[in-house]
């Protein structure tokens, strides 16, 4: 008999003895092992749930890939419309600011332009100026 066979033979006999030893563990240990097994089985669902959530993510992802051209076109259109709106607002604000600055820079106070008498006088002055102009 060679060395390997001797080793396997002795190991097989020891295995038999160790198996006998497992039958003699305490009732307390047996109960805790049973509880641990039940607890572990309850947690098997956690992995399955995680896989399900991953499946939902995969479905959403694949739906995006199928329709991404249309989605990108809609996004570009929305961004363009918003850009035009912002540009128009800026133009109006700039025009108003220019009028305001001209009014404030004039010698006549801005409140005079709301006075009806001042406006009539201003009109008369401009008409007389036109009449006095040489032909």
């Amino acid at each position: 008999m060679n060395k390997t066979t001797d080793e396997a033979d002795l190991a097989a006999r020891i295995r038999g003895m160790l198996d006998q030893g497992t039958a003699e563990i305490s009732q307390k240990a047996s109960l805790r092992l049973y509880e641990a097994r039940c607890d572990a089985l309850r947690h098997q669902g956690a992995a399955v749930a995680a896989l399900s959530l991953a499946g939902i993510g995969h479905t959403l992802g694949s739906s995006f890939h199928r329709h991404y051209r249309g989605i990108l076109a809609l996004v570009a259109l929305a961004v363009g419309a918003m850009g035009v709106q912002v540009w128009q607002n800026e133009q109006e604000a700039a025009a108003l600011a220019e009028i305001d600055s001209e009014l404030l820079g004039d010698e006549v106070p801005p409140s005079a332009y709301t006075d009806q008498g001042f406006l009539e006088w201003l009109q008369q002055i401009s008409e007389s100026d036109e009449e006095s102009l040489p032909e």
């Binding site: 305490s26 092992l33 641990a36 572990a40 992995a47």
Partner: peptide
């Protein structure tokens, strides 16, 4: 130590079930 050994087996079962149960 019996209690420590039981803890080790419990942890092992739980890890197997949680991570490799599928």
């Amino acid at each position: 130590d019996e209690d420590t050994a039981l803890d080790i087996v419990q942890d092992t079962m739980l890890k197997l079930s949680e991570k490799y149960g599928g």
